[in-house]
Design a protein around this nucleic acid. Structure first.
Lengths: 162, 162
DNA sequence: CGGTATCCTAAAAGATACTG
DNA sequence: CAGTATCTTTTAGGATACCG
């Protein structure tokens, strides 16, 4: 349970005190550890938690990660494979580059260029990226497993309320 | 390993065939099961996988879920608590409503209104929502645990490239 | 071709005012 | 005060043309 890099402790204490003032004791006790866990979840968009969660939630990143989880890909094959998996919703070259760069910057993807003719660019996951992708995959499998319950809730909501 | 609600099997077969044509056998074999897992990851934005991943990735939903994980909250306390945890970046009433509605529609949140004076509205997680929140929490803890590696990768990237 | 820069559109999030 | 409706701002994503 390493909680390294605990940022700005006095600020956290301050926030915990304010929570204690407004919440009933039961809620406060329940939220105490959570508040510590979330202490890095800040307003700053470049905060790793915010940025990586945003990546997982955007239109393409998760798909890119999952494809790369099956091995090293050249740019062209990567693009084609993603398009097929995404049910023919083509990823633009720009978006592919933008998302790969974010992943590379966060240590998830390794980009290798060869000076051959024609020049070749390959992408693969780092071990960090593989571990991250496993987490994403687990979440997706959870959603698939609960498909039915979710669909049922949607139907109920759409009928009763609107 | 329930894989219920397998959608549009012929379409999946079709896509698998096209993947086999463009990929080297090793990549194709590695991606086979993945392609099945992702077969529901479609262009349709209301697809549960896309929608729920997008929720986890947006600015407020994960925070809302984690707060509600500690119990039932009235709307006002929920708003205050989120603001404190989000380092004083206030959530607007509109965004709180929008995100809670999405969660309610997907079966994650239960909303109860009492006709008292003054009227009171409470939000709490369903058991589905609790399970979903655990997954989100695990991902966040993963990111916290790998904070250092991520920061290091960022510094390296920012130095070398720009 | 792979990547980037520029421009444009669409969607998310915030501000504000209104309703009950 | 809880929620919604409307308007504005910001950002993600796509189209296209250009550079290596």
């Amino acid at each position: 349970m390493s909680r390294q890099a605990a940022p700005d402790l006095s600020n956290i204490e301050n926030r915990l005190n304010r929570l204690r003032q407004i919440l009933p004791p039961a809620s406060y006790n329940a939220i105490h550890q959570l508040a510590l866990d979330m202490s890095a979840y800040g307003a700053d968009k470049s905060d790793p938690i915010r940025e990586l969660m945003a990546l997982l939630g955007d239109k393409w990143t998760t798909l890119i990660l999952l494809v790369l989880y099956s091995g090293k890909f050249g740019s062209s094959d990567l693009k084609k494979t993603i398009t097929i998996l995404a049910a023919e919703d083509k990823i633009s070259r720009r978006m592919l580059t933008v998302k790969l760069r974010s992943l590379e910057r966060n240590g998830m993807v390794l980009r290798t260029t060869s000076a051959d003719i024609p020049p070749r660019v390959d992408y693969e996951l780092t071990s960090l990226g593989q571990s991250f992708t496993k987490k994403a995959h687990q979440t997706i499998l959870w959603i698939r497993e609960h498909f039915e319950a979710i669909s049922k809730a949607r139907k109920q909501f759409d009928l009763s309320d609107d």
